[in-house]
Write a protein that binds this DNA or RNA. Sequence first.
RNA 1: GCCCAUGUGGCGCAGAGGUAGCGCACCCCCUUGGUAAGGGGGAGGCCACGAGUUCGAAUCUCGUCAUGGGCACCA
Length: 668
Amino acid sequence: MMPQSLAPQLEALTWTPVDKAEFSKLPKAEQLRRIRHSSAHVLASAIQTLRPDVQLAIGPATATGFFYDMKFPGEPLSETELDAIEKTMQAVAGRSAAFEIAELAKPEAIKLFEALDQPHKVEILNRIPAETVTLYRHQTPDKSYFIDLCAGPHVPHTGLCRAAKPLSLSAAHWHGELTPSLTRVAGTAWANEKDLAKYLEFLSASKARDHRTLGPQLDLFTFHPWAMAPMWHPNGFTLRQTLAAFWREMTEDAGYVEIFNPLLYRKALFETSGHWDHFRHNMFVFKNDHEACEHIEGKKEPEKESEGEADILALKPMNCPDTMLYFKSSLRSYRDLPMRVAEGQILHRNEPGGSIHGLMRTRSFIQDDAHIFLTGEQVETEVKSLLDMIDATYKAFDLEYSLKLSTRPENSMGELAVWEQAEAGLKSALEAAGFTPEDATTRDAPASEAAESVSRYYSIDPGEGAFYGPKIDVFVLDSLGRQWQCGTVQLDFQLPARFELKYADADGSLKQPIVVHRAVFGSFERFIGILIEHFGGLFPTWLAPVQAAVLPIGETHLEYAKTVKATLKKARIRTVLMDENTINYRVRQAETQKIPHIIVVGGREADEQSVTVRKARGGGKQQVFALSDFLAHMQDLVTNRTLDVEIERFDALFRAPAEAVMQDDEAY
RNA sequence: GCCCAUGUGGCGCAGAGGUAGCGCACCCCCUUGGUAAGGGGGAGGCCACGAGUUCGAAUCUCGUCAUGGGCACCA
């Protein structure tokens, strides 16, 4: 693997072992970060042993482990090789070989990595401004050295990387190239085998709360290869409707009106909005053609260039453009502003195949969408109250979230000055709502200090804004620690201009309003996916598709069971009667269906007009209520939207976002 | 869209170049008395789809579609 001719040159360098004493004094989190980054080196060395032709790119630490991007010029790497890689990694770790550093002038380093046939390393070197660079090496079981261009820092020896395991393999893009050229081998690494075992156990436990597992199991929805989106079953639809009612209540209380527009539009609408230029390839576009079937059947030749422009139709991918049409439908006054218009219609986006993911990303979905038309002076107050609404909503589900401010992207529309003004507006609204920008000091603060106020920070994502304006996004983690954007608040100066929106101001002059796009849940689909995992399928009573099950002990109690069910049903408590098979069997059925209240009635209950209630996930705990008291209790849970569930908290370690902790350039 | 992997009755899985098995669910009968599976019987699959190799393919090869893990994208 190492050309013999290079050996003298490398030996001539001064190799210094990583300081053990210094490492042992580091905080645990920093040690772990080094373990993970060093594990990437151990991985790379193992792969280089097995596949000497591998060309390495970057190998940073992540929130739960590490990855290394690499290229295989010959045969691609297969998942079946991961076992062999793991064994070799263990052999490398088993040697407890020292990590050693050497400094080298950049031109020398370039020559070295050219000789080693490592073109990506050469490319990285050419981007580094520094005069000298550092190399790290460790010995592999075959007594040769694995040498990597790397800023470090590392652990003292490979033995500290024994609780590491390669997990997956995927494609990765090298610095913005369109075609992926690299293979990413990702793995997990921990301070010790016990933590590793705990994490692996967490991964398999997460599978059980994955919404894609729980959804069909609880009869909420299923997927079908012919359907372009999830198919909602009665239980799932009930859940959606319950959530939608919550949304309507919220928006009505906050002074919104709701409109209802068609799904299908002539393309002129999207040309006006600008979406046609930016997103038409992700829209479902077709020709209004009564003879389409004949064309498909080959009975008719498609017409060439004769089609009228008006015949090109598209399914709407967002609610903004048609909401603009609503605003324009009559002359508006400054007295109407802020004008808050909600619309929860089905949206269709032709998302790339590989991005579709359960409920989290679908080709058809509904947003709890609304647009607010307002003046510049109203922006800060309105955005602040939106942030308050978001906070209240997420608290209602006991969901942890993080906020991200996304600024002007490369493909932005409009003037720079307007963008800057908009970004400043969002920042001051964030601050008015009590959020401060996250910087290095807050992020690295010990967890105990940061815990109380962690959601009071927001991060900044430069260049990630929409093409028409900056935005604040709300992110929530799924059961596997992946981040998903849910709520959003977006400023837009472009649509009002493109649609020539006007309102009459107090002095009678016509002025242009600003538009705020906002969603609190984001999409119902995604939010429900998050909720399923958050509650592990056992929803709080108010949300549960089936809120109570009535189980008569024996046949003689069926009449009373029916009375109980009728009483609850009459009060719109979603209740089912389960009267087939043994009582044990039915209790088990109700438990596995995660029905929050399992009501068992026998002779005693019938005599006393009472119910014995077993609370799901309560370990079989029972409570006896008078029927009327239980009804009042249920009504109370529903009207107050009480969070009557225990939410399982996973170790914060495992819930951390699966993002690279190190930046590319630190990690070379 | 990209790379790798996977696709076997509704679901979860086993098997494997000579034409398929288990558990749950489903249907029928009996059973139903106090909190997580009562008993017996039955039905259900051209092994994702299309082509190729072969005397013979569910099994091997190629393609398509779908799913999974990431990447890229995300109005």
